Amino acid sequence: MTIDEIKVMIELSKTLHFGKTSRATHMSAPSVTRLVQRLEDELGCRLFDRDNRRVQLTEAGKVFQQYVEQQLRAWSELQVAISGVKGTVSGLVRIYCSVTASHSILTDILRPIKDRYPEIRVALSTGPSEETFQKISDDEVDIGICAYPKAVPSSIKIRKIKEVGLSVIVPKGASLDDIRSNALPFIYPKSALTRSYISDWFHQQGIAVKVYTELADVDGTMSLVSLGYGASVIPSLSCASHHLRDQVEVLPMTPELPSLKVGICCKKKVTYPSYVKVIMDAFPST
């Protein structure tokens, strides 16, 4: 098996879904099927029980899953060892963050890394910020970028990148009084952490908002607010650089909403691959 084939089989053993594996690995579904059939023929046993409704690992498949995961770890360790001999830092680092972070924070992190360590390659995946720690714990990614939660798991190492302010945005001509009177409903972010900050702030100000909907992405929120559907709160960095910035109002707030503390994180280990270590070391412990 090639390393790419090993990665495909690991993905399939986790998702138990040929379509999802195809999309995640950029290999066509028929090619994934042919790979499984070839390996099953070579091993003389079934690795997956599959029908029209579900896919399951067989007992042999579970043994195979452990084997390919060990092989991928060994390959990563070999890359690190060779990097040490060559005196360079190289390898593939898997990074996870929200779409918002990929737009507003990621480039500032990776630009100096790319300049200094051009042989480090990056595999980027995006999704809800709340899934960051779980993906790190499950070894799906090496590094995550997310807002600090109220409690950081003991298995996670996190270092501060920056603090990001929150902006209250409303349609042109609207005001805080429109939110207070419920003339303007509120579009809540789906992020539980951001939502809790906003709810606490409104409670302290004695404001009971009328909820219009919940949205996970900044683009959708900016669109609805610019069209007059409601008010919302988004990270100030995202608002300032958004193409719809001139079509919404940013309300000055007293007191200001609390800032989000954004960090870079990884799993706590005794030793780290060099390509993870140099990225984490770019941010001092606090």
Rank of each mutant, 00 (worst) to 15 (best):
I198E: 00
A183F: 11
L193N: 11
G228V: 02
A174P: 08
R180G: 02
L237W: 03
A174K: 15
A192D: 10
T194H: 00
H243Q: 15
G206D: 06
V225L: 04
S199V: 12
C239G: 12
T254W: 09
L224S: 09
L237V: 09
S259N: 10
Q247C: 12
Q205N: 07
L224W: 05
S199C: 11
E214V: 05
P252R: 06
Y229K: 14
S241T: 10
A183Q: 14
L176C: 01
I234E: 06
F202A: 05
S241N: 13
E214G: 09
V209N: 03
H243D: 10
Q204R: 10
L251M: 04
H203C: 13
V211A: 14
V225Q: 00
Q204D: 14
I198Y: 04
S238M: 01
Q247H: 11
V225S: 00
P189T: 08
Y188M: 13
A183W: 14
V211Q: 12
L224F: 08
E249H: 09
Q247S: 15
E256N: 10
I198D: 00
I179S: 04
S236W: 02
G220V: 05
G206L: 07
H243V: 09
S259K: 14
A174F: 15
V225A: 00
A216R: 15
S238L: 01
G220A: 04
Y197W: 02
W201C: 04
V250W: 00
V211E: 15
G230K: 02
L237Y: 06
A216Y: 08
T254F: 15
P185C: 08
H242N: 09
P235S: 07
E249F: 07
G220N: 06
S238T: 08
D217N: 14
G206S: 06
I207M: 02
P252T: 07
S199W: 07
S191R: 00
S191Q: 05
C239W: 12
H242E: 06
L176W: 00
A183T: 11
A174Q: 11
H242K: 04
V225R: 04
I234Q: 05
P185Q: 08
E249I: 13
L215T: 03
A216Q: 14
G228E: 07
D219P: 03
A216E: 12
Y197V: 01
A216T: 10
P185H: 09
Y197S: 02
D217S: 11
S199E: 15
L193D: 10
L251R: 07
T254H: 14
L260V: 08
